[in-house]
Design a protein around this nucleic acid. Structure first.
Length: 465
RNA sequence: GGUCCCUUCGUCUAGCGGUCUAGGACACCGGCCUUUCACGUCGGUAACACGGGUUCGAUUCCCGUAGGGAUCACCA
């Protein structure tokens, strides 16, 4: 175990989205690689917007991705006493002060400043206020130093510096006594001994004021690593209008977690020319040094390609278990037909998602095949009657046949009738599936079984007469 | 608008001063394979934002410009 302590700190105001998942993944990977500690902290200080449903959704998504944590989940809503005492400490030391300005006043000042071409920064009205009005509502503001600059070395972005006079006195405690994000994040990261903060770079601008707070509190300042944003195809921040942004929505669309992990990690991180990475391999190879500094566009096509890859390479047993729920949703009970694992094997190379696989598997379990009109007229023609009948005769003699036996049987028919496979094959395909797209003929007959196959062939024979 | 960050094919990226007539992957186009659809395989189109420096030599270093993004809440 190393001294590295990282955390993922989502706020439970919705599902876990793509960007959050990648941040969580980077944290997890580094923790596992360095044998550090990965902490999950729920940032629910905004009681009004936080929900238990969101917490559950985030937990489920992390589990689906395979990201386990060593400590937590810790809830900020259960730590208000700590925050309050820290606020009091800062006020006592003169490092924070009560501000009695009202929301309306502040809003007015902001607009006026903006109109005058100035910065919408807090004007410091209460900064040097000496009196303590009683009965008036107040917030507590952090007294940020107005001289010098704050410099830090971001593990991804490099050296970054801000002039302190650009920063204003941020509110750390609301009128209702609850603390705000920029304060609790500092208290918690300090209290939990976080040594490296990996987060989205939308937090980059918060970092200097947070560093100033660590210093005011007398706490060691952690390192920071700001991960670039994920954008949509139009280069705008990824949002719903770019398609699904919820990690779990991809599970529902038939994606495998390893495909999602692989895609996410390669969006912003690279290891030479390598594209395919398993989780264990990532733990070994991941590093902050190879994380890029610029924002990246989410590319659904590549995710789909990766998913196809993992379906192709996946264990049929496991895929069968996973595809079952997609089948059941479509009203198909795999127990009523051929062995699902065998079915999956015939579909792995031609399915990009579990959803596609379920759709492609439907014909195996159909009690009655309905023919596509065009396919039937083109391939279920009178000249195929004799060879199909001959095939039925051969198939019916067996309870089971493996793929090569099926091939042998069909080849016999071909030899006897002088027909080409190019003529017979499509007819068999339409008879068995109703359409022109399916797995290979031989494997299909083998999986369906000679009895069921001949039953379907007989029906086709009746149809073409 | 202020501040901060970013800038290699359409997209994800390799590149860490000469190896670049810039490599890989997705997507796209074409050949091959073939009982369908796919898979696979082979090949092709396609990028260093611009302008100055530094240097014997810049995709690589520095400075501008332009463009993009983030942030300026009693949200996180």
């Amino acid at each position: 175990m190393s001294s590295l302590r990282v955390r993922f700190a989502p706020s439970p105001t919705g599902y876990l989205h793509i960007g959050g998942a990648r941040t969580a993944l980077f944290n997890w990977l580094l923790a596992r690689k360095e044998q550090g500690t990965f902490i999950l902290r729920i940032e629910d200080t905004d009681v009004a917007r936080s929900t238990q449903e969101s917490v559950d959704a985030i937990l489920q998504a992390m589990e689906w991705l395979g990201l386990d944590y060593d400590e937590g989940p810790l809830y900020q809503s259960q730590r208000f006493d700590l925050y309050r005492s820290k606020v009091d400490q800062l006020v006592g030391e003169g490092k924070a002060y009560r501000c009695y300005c009202t929301v309306e006043e502040l809003e007015q000042k902001r607009e006026a400043a903006l109109k005058a071409g100035g910065k919408p920064k807090y004007d410091g009205t209460c900064r040097e206020r000496r009196d303590q009005p009683t009965g008036l509502p107040f917030v507590v503001r952090f007294r940020t130093p107005q001289d010098g600059e704050t410099v830090f070395n971001d593990r991804i972005k490099g050296t970054i510096s801000f002039r302190n006079d650009e920063l204003d006195d941020v509110i750390i405690q609301r009128t209702d006594g609850t603390p705000t994000y920029n304060f609790v994040v500092v208290i918690d990261d300090a209290d939990m001994g976080i040594t490296l903060v990996i987060r989205g770079d939308d937090h980059l601008n918060n970092t200097p004021r947070q560093i100033l707070m660590y210093q005011a509190l007398g706490c060691p300042v952690p390192e920071f690593a700001h991960v670039p944003m994920i954008l949509g195809a139009d280069k705008a921040r990824l949002s719903k209008r770019h398609g699904a942004t919820s990690v779990m929505a991809y599970r529902e669309m038939g994606y495998l977690p390893e495909a999602m992990v692989n895609y996410l990690v390669r969006l912003g991180w690279s290891h030479g020319d390598q594209e395919i990475f398993g989780l264990r391999e990532l733990v070994e190879k991941f590093s902050l040094e190879n994380v890029g500094r610029s924002a990246g566009v989410f590319n659904p096509d590549k995710l789909l390609w990766l998913n196809a890859h993992y379906i192709k390479a996946g264990d049929p047993q496991r895929l069968a278990a996973l595809v079952t729920e997609f089948l059941l949703v479509r009203g198909i009970d795999p127990a009523t037909g051929p062995d699902l694992v065998a079915v999956v094997r015939t579909l792995q190379e031609r399915s990009r998602t579990l959803l596609e696989m379920a759709e492609a598997a439907a014909f195996y379990y159909a009690s009655e095949i309905s023919y596509e009109l065009e396919a039937a007229t083109k391939f279920l023609t009178a000249d195929r009657e004799a060879p199909l009948a001959a095939l039925v005769e051969k198939l019916e003699k067996h309870a089971t046949l493996d793929e090569s036996a099926v091939e042998a049987a069909i080849n016999e028919v071909l030899a006897e009738t002088g027909l080409k496979l190019g003529k017979l094959g499509p007819a068999i395909r339409v008879a068995l599936t109703g359409g022109t797209v399916s797995p290979g003929i031989f494997e299909m007959v083998a999986v369906l079984g000679p009895q069921e196959s001949s039953r379907r062939l007989r029906r086709a024979l009746r149809h073409l007469r």
